[in-house]
């Protein structure tokens, strides 16, 4: 733990030296309507270079919608989203070029091996990388060399996630959008993934991840935004070398989750709610 703090302190110094306080992602009074229903209401937040921002929320809170807005798949009905200070709506392709996106349960092609998947997706993006580069990055994400020539259908979920992370790293974009990156992973794989995410942020990437894993978000994020029913209801910021307090976030998250579950019950079966 002590070692971790030292490392973090050193990184903070390097961030200052590299001028990390640059806005990479910005949601500005973002409203999104889907099927005549508001799914995001007046959301505003920013993500800077070298920062991990975690959007935390339950199912249907609007987390993935936020990511899709930055990728230009959903355009705001009001407000705007900016990637590197440019409105996404004005140039979707420029926004997508700046972003590496890791969808939930990253489904790469199962009939291809790790190297072939990387070659295909990087070719699609128009990124030239050598086999050596790929091996280096796969080493960094700790994918065993003997696994790299096996088709992905033989991989565990954690191994697939590593390949997807490797893809995001090899694209060398300034921004990473991660949708539930730890979903379905075992604790060791989660720790390893957090280490990788933290390392990428320390190397200057701006990372926006959405998750409902309170502990994981606190472990890796510099800031946490709490999303509830399309509203950003709170924000937690790591102070100095200290990580965000898990208990505080958990309490806030649970209270929102409980109020949500109360609201989801019909009044007749829940006398407390009818009193409210």
């Amino acid at each position: 733990m002590f070692g971790c703090n030292l490392e973090h302190r050193a990184t903070s110094v390097s961030q200052l030296l590299l001028g990390f306080n640059v806005l990479m992602l910005q949601a500005d009074s973002l409203h999104v309507v889907r099927s005549n229903k508001a799914v995001l209401n007046d959301i505003s937040f920013t993500v800077q270079r070298g920062e991990v921002y975690a959007l935390l929320g339950g199912n249907g809170a609007g987390k993935s919608t936020t990511l899709l807005s930055f990728l230009g798949f959903l355009l705001p009905s009001q407000g705007r989203v900016l990637v590197k200070d440019k409105d996404v709506g004005a140039d979707v392709m420029a926004a997508r070029r700046a972003i590496s996106y890791l969808p939930e349960s990253a489904s790469l092609y199962e009939h291809l091996n790790a190297i072939e998947n990387l070659q295909y997706f990087l070719g699609l993006a128009g990124v030239d990388v050598t086999l050596g580069d790929m091996d280096t990055v796969l080493d960094r994400v700790s994918l065993a060399p003997d696994a790299r020539k096996r088709n992905l259908r033989d991989y565990s979920k954690g191994m697939r996630q590593k390949v997807a992370i490797a893809l995001a790293m090899l694209r060398n974009s300034d921004i990473l959008l991660l949708d539930e990156p730890t979903s379905g992973l075992d604790p060791n794989a989660i720790d390893e993934l957090h280490r990788i995410i933290r390392g990428l942020a320390d190397a200057g990437k701006a990372i926006l991840m959405v998750t409902h894993d309170v502990y994981g978000a606190c472990q890796v994020a510099d800031r946490i935004g709490l999303l509830h029913s399309g509203n950003l209801v709170g924000e937690f910021v790591a102070q100095g070398d200290d990580r965000i307090d898990t208990n505080a976030v958990h309490t806030a998250f649970a209270s929102k989750a409980n109020s949500s579950s109360l609201l989801s019950n019909p009044p007749s079966s829940n006398p407390q709610l009818s009193k409210v």
Binding site: L71, F73, L102, P103, A106, F121, L124
Partner: peptide
């Protein structure tokens, strides 16, 4: 269905051509 569509669209330099 495979959850790859957005990844392909956001990765491809020419998504329509893909």
């Amino acid at each position: 269905t495979a959850g790859r569509y957005n990844l392909l669209e956001s990765t491809a330099a020419r998504p329509a051509s893909l």
